[in-house]
Simulated scan of single mutants.
Amino acid sequence: METVKLNNHVEMPILGFGVYQISLSDTKRCVMDALETGYRLIDTAQYYGNEAGVGEAVTASGIPRNKIFITTKIQSNRNVTGLIDASLEKLRTDYIDLLLIHWVMGNDLATYRVMEESVKQGKVRAIGLSNFYGRDFDNIINHCEIMPAVNQLETHVFYQNRDLRALYKKNGTYLEAWAPFGEGKANMFKNPILAGIAREHNRTVAQVILRFLIQSDIIVIPKSTHKERMVENINVFDFSLCEEDMRKIEALDKNESLFGWY
């Protein structure tokens, strides 16, 4: 598994397994399948209601905790310390590898400062943001002590966030893609450009999409409840897209959200 080095020198897998919209009852099975397949980054959130399933799977896997990278997300709250402790308990771990504010709530800077203290206390290894744009993102980076390691945003071939990536690079903040397949919207899997490139490489469209994002230095967290798809999604490190392929896919960027986020 390829990794990226975050701005605090913590290494994070560039491809992981997301558990959004996976029910708590299915989460343990899915995460154990993902870990068995080779995933070492698991992305969850308090809002998903399935942190406990992630914790059960990580514990049951027998894989040393320091070989698994766990991301979770919290919402801004007056009792941020309590939220972090609740996640630690459900995840059955002494520390969280990456903790994000899930979305803008209004008292985000105060929340972020508590997260900074959690890093100093050893409860969290790295911190960042999710769904932060414009002045809300600027409010954090202009007043923080620890620069966000990651901003997790809707990112896929039709919404590539190239301007933001250039901005983040100055601060050492990685872009992480949620919905890297756009949930199949806009006929992404039937796009003729992607399909043609997939045929040339004897790959699936999904693999071409993930390979494009990874070669663009974007962290990806595809989700599936089917083990065969998990296998398909992780098998993207034994081929590369050429410059022409990359240019063709870059030209698909419409710079518009498929979900109405921004």
Rank of each mutant, 00 (worst) to 15 (best):
Q160A: 08
P64V: 00
G18Y: 09
L153G: 03
E89F: 08
E243Q: 12
I127K: 11
N142L: 14
S118T: 10
Y262C: 11
F158I: 03
G128M: 07
N191Y: 03
V157C: 10
E183Q: 14
G53M: 03
A45R: 02
I127S: 06
T59N: 08
L164Y: 15
D43A: 02
P180H: 12
K227I: 15
L175E: 10
G49Q: 03
T37I: 12
N77I: 05
Q207E: 00
I221M: 11
F137M: 13
H201M: 08
E200G: 11
I96S: 02
K170V: 13
T3C: 10
R199K: 15
E200N: 13
F137W: 15
N187A: 13
Y262T: 12
R65F: 10
M12Q: 05
G49W: 13
E243C: 07
I42E: 09
M12S: 05
E36N: 04
E117T: 11
A195H: 01
R125I: 13
N107G: 15
I214D: 07
A206L: 04
I221H: 04
V104A: 11
E11K: 11
K90R: 12
A198F: 01
F259A: 05
W103P: 02
F212T: 06
V157L: 05
C242G: 14
W261V: 15
P148E: 02
R229C: 01
Y47Q: 13
D138H: 14
S76K: 02
S76G: 15
V114K: 12
I84Q: 03
K120N: 13
Y174L: 10
T44H: 09
I141T: 13
Q215K: 07
R229I: 01
Q160H: 12
V58Y: 03
A186C: 10
N107D: 14
F158N: 00
D94K: 15
G16A: 07
K67H: 14
P13G: 02
R162K: 15
L91S: 01
K123G: 01
R203E: 04
A186W: 04
C144M: 06
Y174R: 13
V119E: 00
N77Y: 06
K227F: 05
A166H: 12
L258I: 00
V114D: 11
D26T: 03
L99I: 04
I221C: 06
A195I: 01
Y39V: 05
I22P: 03
R165N: 05
Q75E: 13
L167M: 12
K120W: 08
E2H: 11
I140E: 06
H9T: 14
D97N: 07
D238I: 07
V205Y: 00
W178G: 05
A57D: 07
I84A: 06
K120L: 12
E56T: 09
T204L: 07
E243N: 06
A149L: 02
S118Y: 06
F212N: 02
K223M: 08
R29T: 12
F237W: 13
Y159S: 13
I193L: 03
I14M: 14
Y159G: 05
D94Q: 10
N139K: 15
E200W: 01
S224C: 07
F158R: 00
N50V: 08
N255F: 00
